[in-house]
Nucleic acid binder design. Structure first.
Lengths: 243, 243
DNA sequence: GCAAAAGTGTTAGTCATACACCCATGT
DNA sequence: ACATGGGTGTATGACTAACACTTTTGC
């Protein structure tokens, strides 16, 4: 946007309210989005990292992220960037936090907004694309050195995830449409790094009215098949729930 | 920052990774900060609004906020802007959320980061300054039409405040250094819009080890003076506490 | 003494925890 | 039959909610 396009009045503002730099100098920043995609597999919580094939921090591991176009919304940018770099589409992502240290990006002033999501690794198959040269689910115990301030963004995302999982029903993004009570318990135990008593955990969830039992059962397991459940229709990611 | 200052490698990026616009076009956004300052007085929770004396939205009520300089950190920007417009200095503000709809600002692409704080209205005396023409604590029940998407920002700040007050000790920013148990209860009741039983509320806080009793008492009250407490040294704004 | 709010003790009920036990399935 | 995990019942103790009561101050 050039000075010519701006409303008359706004030029008044620039003239009369004593900004110490010309108004246009404010419009010199870039925004980026960074996606903290948590995935759950076996007994492990992982995060999706890409190997950067572009400067800066070429060849470093990093969160999937990129610059936002000036004409796209933040949330759309997060969806687009994630899809471009990993092929993951239509993930339920939620805004986590923003990071704006002056020197966090070597090229210029880039403020980044982080988004996070939870997925079941079994259900997704991300593939490195665009300038992402490689892609890997990293266990949270084995995070390599990351580009930019991505380590801080990752840690902050983890905090947000834990807080939201223990107070809301957010964790269900990580489960398939049909799931067993054991699946849920497993997920909670891994994310919150805490053991729950089976009987009590079941009681809590079954009395919550957030689950709807299906007629179906697990199959092909070498033990008694567990009942499958689905989320009640009224549940959304904002539903409050204390574990 | 001009193209000339940028590292060689980054120009490679622009050339070879297929951005659909020149790299410089990314660096055409502005950032702003908006401060949601909650204040507590008598039986009411209020929010500090300014009457804008600058375009756009001149003469509208708005949250105290302004553009961030390209060479200052986000958090510093929030502190500076709040001080410039209202004189409030050194408030403990915490980042709440970011808002980035393409058309949220009539002048150009401005992504805003919101910060929130809690203060005891008795202890502070904000005064309109700079381009803020007027300033007023508005009861949350009587919020006028607000500039930009500030209504959305305010509501989101309120949600963040409530969530954090019920799971952390954040509420204490709203209290003076010395306070009575009644003060705390009052604050919780107003913010969470919920009544608590006096005896039970006291027991909960006194058994929390977050409070240290002082020798001092309230004075000049027409009833039995209450004991004063201060926060234990180990408490910070991240201390976890379930009410 | 009275009003007002500080501050405490008791009780009933609810909920969390721990743990033992039975059930259904594949091999 | 047995190994494995699904699924349930119950006793204990801790915590919550409700409420009555005593205490201390100013007027």
């Amino acid at each position: 946007m050039t000075q010519e396009n701006k409303p008359e009045d706004f030029r008044d503002l620039a003239d009369s309210y004593g900004y110490s730099i010309p108004l246009d100098d404010f419009f010199s920043c870039a925004l980026s989005v960074d996606c903290v995609i948590f995935g759950y597999e076996d007994n492990d919580l992982k995060v999706l990292l890409i190997k950067r094939g572009a400067q800066p921090f070429k060849k470093s591991w990093a969160l999937p992220g990129d610059l936002m176009y000036p004409d796209e919304n933040l949330k759309n940018a997060a969806q687009r960037v994630l899809k471009d770099l990993t092929g993951l589409d239509n993930l339920f992502m939620e805004q986590a936090s923003s990071f704006g240290s002056v020197d966090r990006h070597p090229v210029g002033r880039v403020v980044t907004v982080s988004y996070y999501a939870l997925v079941n690794i079994r259900d997704y198959n991300p593939v490195a694309a665009s300038w992402a040269k490689k892609l890997k689910w990293h266990s949270l115990q084995e995070i390599p050195e990351l580009a930019f301030d991505h380590r801080e963004i990752l840690d902050s995302g983890m905090t947000t995830l834990r807080r939201n999982l223990s107070t809301r029903l957010i964790g269900f993004n990580l489960l398939p449409d049909k799931f067993t009570l054991k699946d849920i318990q497993h997920l909670y135990e891994i994310v919150l790094d805490k053991k729950f008593d089976k009987a009590n955990f079941r009681k809590k969830f079954l009395s919550s009215e957030f689950l709807e039992p299906l007629e179906e059962m697990e199959s092909n397991v070498p033990y008694r098949p567990a009942k499958l459940y689905k989320l009640a229709d009224k549940v959304d990611n904002r539903s409050s729930f204390e574990i």
